[in-house]
Each structure stands twice: as structure tokens, then as C-alpha cells.
């Protein structure tokens, strides 16, 4: 996926790069990104998998309300990646839908 290069109404200047990793892969985001927007800009839409049927999960609301985007960030589970700002050096992992080691 990519970023909007030019827009008739909005200005998206070239913002400084923020480095992070996703499942061990080195990726680049931009200043002002949330974790989810940076992942999306890198073409990563699957953020987790559902618990029972292992269906892929992406984000849905993008404003922190629906829990569809929970991921493990720097070892902390269940971070709402659609509202959490991206920070240099973040380590981001997919997690099972509940984030924990729950056994069912």
C-alpha cells in the first residue's frame, strides 16, 4: 500500500521517518503515524487472528472503539494500535485475539 502523494485540499509534507519492527521485519513509518496507519502504509492489513476460527482481523473503526486492532507492542498485549502513536524502535507482534495465554 502507500501514502497519498498529492491532494487537492490537504497537505501531507514529507515527515521524518520512524523505524520499527513488525514480527521481526524492519519497517518504516512517518512521524504522526499511529501503529496501525504505519502498518497499513506498509501493506500490512492483517493485525491479528480470531481465537476460534483463526479468521484474519484488521482494523475497523480507527478511533479506539472496536478492539479489532489489538496487538502486542513492546511486550504489552492488547494495545489499540489504531490510536497508539508510533514510536522509534517499537516492536510490534500479532497476538491471538485475546492477547493472553487463555486455554479454552
Amino acid at each position: 500500500m502507500s501514502r497519498i502523494s498529492e491532494h487537492p485540499i490537504l497537505k501531507f509534507e514529507d515527515k521524518p521517518v520512524i523505524n520499527f519492527t513488525f514480527e521481526g521485519r524492519k519497517l518504516e513509518g512517518r512521524q504522526g503515524d499511529t501503529i496501525a496507519s504505519a502498518l497499513h502504509a506498509n501493506g500490512i492489513m492483517v493485525l491479528s487472528h480470531s481465537r476460534r476460527n483463526k479468521r484474519p482481523r484488521g482494523f475497523f473503526c480507527a478511533i479506539g472503539k472496536c478492539s479489532s486492532c489489538l496487538m502486542t507492542v513492546n511486550g504489552k498485549a492488547n494495545v489499540r494500535t489504531c490510536v497508539e502513536p508510533l514510536v522509534e524502535g517499537m516492536e510490534i507482534l500479532r497476538q491471538p485475539a485475546t492477547g493472553g495465554e487463555l486455554k479454552w
Binding site: I4, H7, P56, F59, C82
Partner: peptide, 19 residues
């Protein structure tokens, strides 16, 4: 993934500049 609310599409594109 790819089924989004209209608000999310707007947020992604108009706030973060992501396609």
C-alpha cells in the same frame, strides 16, 4: 480486513495520509 467503517477510511486517508 479491508471492510472498514467510513470513519476509519476518512481517518486513514485524511488524517494520516495513508491510501
Amino acid at each position: 480486513p479491508g471492510v472498514y467503517g467510513a470513519g476509519a477510511v476518512q481517518t486513514l486517508m485524511n488524517q494520516y495520509g495513508v491510501v
